[in-house]
Design a protein around this nucleic acid. Structure first.
Lengths: 300, 300
DNA sequence: TTAATATGATAGTTATTATCTATTAGTTGT
DNA sequence: ACAACTAATAGATAATAACTATCATATTAA
């Protein structure tokens, strides 16, 4: 059975005239006749009485027409449902976000983001990179916001922003008067690091190693905030991504040279159904004024 | 959009597996993939998330699946309606029947006829032939039971039975002792006839004319019963179809020679939708025992 | 009645599209 | 790394919906 054929029947019943119905359905009259005949054979019921002057429905035809109309109405509803739900990222969207981004990105963006994507119900979960990736695989997460790592080759990613790393040190530190600092100048200071699993730690450790700078592992903080508290007490220095560099009493942020950066991306499964929505969201994020402002602000 | 495609979607949602769904739908997996993809494009909605280990419905897919199931259910109902209403002569059937048949055929058959065609609601209307034919044209009647006449060439007809004409006369009539009578022997009697419009009158008049017998038109009865009442009072003789020859006080029925007959047929429009039902009904009628018995009973 | 008009059915052909088989790309599990 | 599995793709074929042209029949008008 075919929905088109049901439309034909409805049209003939309405016009009581094959040619007029055919015109209304944008097909030729023989097509209409043929298809209706086929449907009648399939149903085993003669729907129309073509023998009287006017084409009329048979008794059975009348009964079946009611049901045919029901089907066509429900089909129309399906189409309308589809049309209204075709907005990108419709419905619940679970987003994983790493701990070195979440607290600095979300507060400023969350409200306007909810407004901009009103059809979506975002749920954010703070997780470390490795967990995020398996959660993406399982479908527990739809999207992730995290720093670019080689593993992301297996996923679909869109850039959101690049951010510099700075060194955070106490005002008392003898480097604090400088306006920038070279990596190897940090050799003398004790470098505070995040605990294992934070991709930020891996990356910092990596470029320290490349610059031949030793890293003391005597203390590993669970969050940047903890580390910064230690830094404020002049217990060491640490690296901080630019977004996290809000004014803090007793702390000075210095640019590093050569510049160290990380790329923050939006990631999802390679064949995530709503890639278009992902692009849209990433674009919206990357162009958000308050984000741009935070990334470019001059630190005193 | 296509109902088959909706079936495919339902199957995939059920099995969460394209190949299994394809098997269940008796098509190949590529066919399934292709058709679902086409449907997704048509609706502008991605129904399935094929990127996770298990195929799952997207949020929109879940919403639409509910509606898809509604459509398929309603389609099933349509099929069932068609199947149950495919019995021949389903519903109201209006039957026209001529006055020289109705009172003799219906009483014996009506009850068992209703039983045999339980799905039909028969409505009988007693009409003369000419009116019956126009009523068939207008769709006011579906079927007619009447004596065969040339005009029926334009209609679809099926034989029900042939019946002899007999002469009804008073016991007092001087021909009443005979066991049969020749047409021209009636010349002496006054021949009572039905009024104009009765095909039975036309036919009787016709074969009287052919036999060179004069017909007095001094009295035209409106029904056979009236004529027979006159006959009983020996006011004349009349022709009676065999079926009407029930035992009546003071009346004797005699066969005519050469035998005169009429053919009683079931008629409908040439393209009446339920010709199969017509055949069935005609067949049932012609084989009905009490009809056969009435047609062959020996009159004393 | 004959001619003109209208209507749905039929025949034959073409275009469309649903389906198939074979293969590929990408995953998963051993 | 390799075998097994799954969905997507490519290309060919079969099914069928569609068209044009024509017919049969019925209705209307001259």
């Amino acid at each position: 059975m075919n929905l088109k054929d049901l439309e034909y029947v409805k049209a003939i019943a309405h016009f009581k005239h094959f040619r007029k119905a055919a015109d209304a359905c944008y097909v030729s009259q023989p097509t209409l006749s043929g298809q209706v005949k086929k449907l009648e054979q399939e149903l085993g019921v003669t729907l129309f009485d073509r023998s009287t002057k006017q084409v009329t429905l048979t008794v059975q035809g009348e009964r079946l027409l009611t049901q045919i109309k029901v089907i066509l109405e429900q089909t129309q509803i399906l189409k309308e449902l589809a049309a209204t739900s075709s907005a990108p990222l419709q419905g619940r969207v679970k987003i994983g976000i790493i701990p070195t981004i979440a607290p600095y990105l979300l507060p400023t963006l969350l409200t306007s983001m909810k407004e901009a994507f009103a059809e979506s119900q975002f749920a954010f979960v703070e997780m470390q990179t490795a967990n995020i990736l398996t959660a993406l695989d399982n479908g527990e997460l739809d999207i992730a916001i995290l720093a670019d790592v080689p593993e992301l080759k297996l996923y679909h990613t869109v850039n959101i922003y690049k951010e510099d790393f700075l060194v955070a040190m106490s005002n008392q530190n003898n480097l604090a008067k400088r306006d920038k600092v070279a990596l190897d100048e940090l050799q003398s200071c004790s470098l505070l690091m995040l605990s294992d699993g934070h991709c930020f730690k891996d990356q910092a450790q990596q470029f320290c190693f490349a610059a031949g700078v030793d890293v003391s592992n005597e203390y590993q903080g669970n969050s940047l905030e903890t580390l910064l508290a230690l830094v404020a007490m002049d217990d060491g220095v640490t690296f901080v991504p630019k977004l996290a560099c809000s004014e803090r009493i007793g702390i000075r942020y210095l640019p590093i040279f050569p510049t160290q950066q990380r790329r923050v991306v939006l990631a999802c499964r390679k064949h995530y159904p709503h890639l278009a929505g992902i692009e849209l969201l990433a674009n919206w994020l990357s162009e958000h004024p308050s984000l741009r402002q935070q990334l470019t602000k001059v630190l005193n």
